[in-house]
Design a protein around this nucleic acid. Sequence first.
DNA 1: CTGAACTGAGCAAACGGTTGCACCGAAGGA
DNA 2: TCCTTCGGTGCAACCGTTTGCTCAGTTCAG
Lengths: 338, 338
Amino acid sequence: MRVTINDIAKAANVSPATVSRAIADSPRISKATKKKIFKIMEEMNYYPNVIARSLARKSTNIIGILVMGTTEKAFQHPFFPEILRGVASVAYKNKYKILISSVTNMDEQREIVDDLTQSGITDGILLLSSGVKDPSITYLKEIQFPFVVVGRPDNENEVNWVDNDNISVGYKMTQHLIEMGCTEIAFLGVDRKFIVTLDRLKGYKMALQDNNIALNEDLIVEGKFVDDTGYELMKNLMEKGIVPSGVIACDDLLAFGVIKYLNEKGLKVPDDVAVAGFNNVPLSSYFTPPLTSVDINAFSLGAKGFELLMACMKSEYKSFNRAIIPTQLIIRESTLKK
Amino acid sequence: MRVTINDIAKAANVSPATVSRAIADSPRISKATKKKIFKIMEEMNYYPNVIARSLARKSTNIIGILVMGTTEKAFQHPFFPEILRGVASVAYKNKYKILISSVTNMDEQREIVDDLTQSGITDGILLLSSGVKDPSITYLKEIQFPFVVVGRPDNENEVNWVDNDNISVGYKMTQHLIEMGCTEIAFLGVDRKFIVTLDRLKGYKMALQDNNIALNEDLIVEGKFVDDTGYELMKNLMEKGIVPSGVIACDDLLAFGVIKYLNEKGLKVPDDVAVAGFNNVPLSSYFTPPLTSVDINAFSLGAKGFELLMACMKSEYKSFNRAIIPTQLIIRESTLKK
DNA sequence: CTGAACTGAGCAAACGGTTGCACCGAAGGA
DNA sequence: TCCTTCGGTGCAACCGTTTGCTCAGTTCAG
């Protein structure tokens, strides 16, 4: 069968304990012994069994990523792999492995969280969520399991989290459109379940106020955040007789739908209507016209999220940390009115 | 500390072995005893420790997903999360967990594969790859570890794999363009490292031949498969003085770049040049014009891949299986010449 | 009435590491 | 020379389950 630490010990004429310590690079083992052991490990093609190690150490060096999609669309959004890549990048450097788990519907959440936490398979988990009143967050706090939320939760002072400053993001974008001469700016895709959209909306309102533009509630359109219903949302708006001079969609995917509808109606973007999105998906720059957006730096969200998690796993839950990842307004043709 | 099987045993006045067997629903334990044990487990809030279980069982119910990106772009492509979702979907039903691992550069491959296989953490692995002569495939065969490749490998008879019939995919698309009246059809984005692009090219050639159209090598342009360099590729082609009546790009993302360039040059799509892509990324339908593509059914690729892997893990490596996932030509405006 | 066949459950040895503590020999100080 | 100190290593318990055997008690056929 496979070669174990005992085989190495026998071959090296030492005890298994010594081999174990050599592998852990314990200072209690002499250079000479280590060298001998490593040589034999190499020769015998030995790999430590991480399961056995995990059992003994009571820690697995595995973290779980929980995608709190109320819908499977969450998985499909381009920023998901980017976050994942960010996490993977720093996790790999720190010898951590990543277990992903799909959450399909809300009923399964509790079960999946239990599966990840109580079974002892993960040392900590990263929650991809920006949902309002997320029950998993409450539960994780309750069982005192190390976790970090990617996306600011509503009880922001009681958990570790990392996010963009979405209020500022909304503000910046609105400010930009105002500077481009837009006065009637529609805000599309507010989903009251997602804090991120609410925050961006808040920023939007603040910018209007700072520019002495009256808020018109009719211009604020609710919709599913990550579903691609921009086309319908815009259609509904215009069929009410409202033709804004600028549109901010809560996500680029929504914005694409908006532009599609405007095109069909013969309205020019940006000259008739300026359109902007958020999240800067890879295709925004290839769209016609290239879409103004905000880069949220999803890679960093993931990377920083993992760093916080590591800290959290070590520090036995003393204080709560947060991190704000800077964003970048990417101005492209879709808002550049002549 | 956490409650273990021994605590349950004591509370139920039975041996740990009996509890273990009750959990496994062994016929050797009486209904009455089982009932008593389950009740106590519930009361004491017991969760089995999967690490200890894995050690004893020598199997973890975890599979690894290896993303063989020569570049990190692989992670970013929209079909990646779709495949992942497919895998997760059926894995979840079968009580399997998923470990993902990032492969950044080729040098790390071996190390990461060892990490996943030799450490005992996974029971099998899914390789996301369509690379030519993938060294990891050779290695996995060598160590006799259960694995399935998503994407037909070159030694197709010696491994388990699942893929689309990319030759047919290329054929169908070419045939479509020919029927739309295109005679000079460019084929963009052939990457000799990727079997998938080579297969699609093969289909392209077959279709030309079947329609008695002479092959013009100048129309075949190599490029990076998943990089968004369609713009440059098209530019290079046209700057050689070649203006095809149709363009097939090996991926939608390339096609977007192609269209962008054509727009800039004042050429109308599809009337001047018909353009098609592959993989049917979510945005293709929102593009202007909506892009003709082929849906590769990435979800099924993942789901079926996992099913094959399960079979492979059980069947001690007897025979090799494969599965072909059907594709669907999605005709949209970008190729509908008037 | 006795031995065989069953049922239901327990003992104890794995599984492959880690780690607190004991131990031993050599060096150093008194 | 004797006692301490200390570097280097081994012993054995432990991590929480699983599982091959054994075994006690019943049932039942001969």
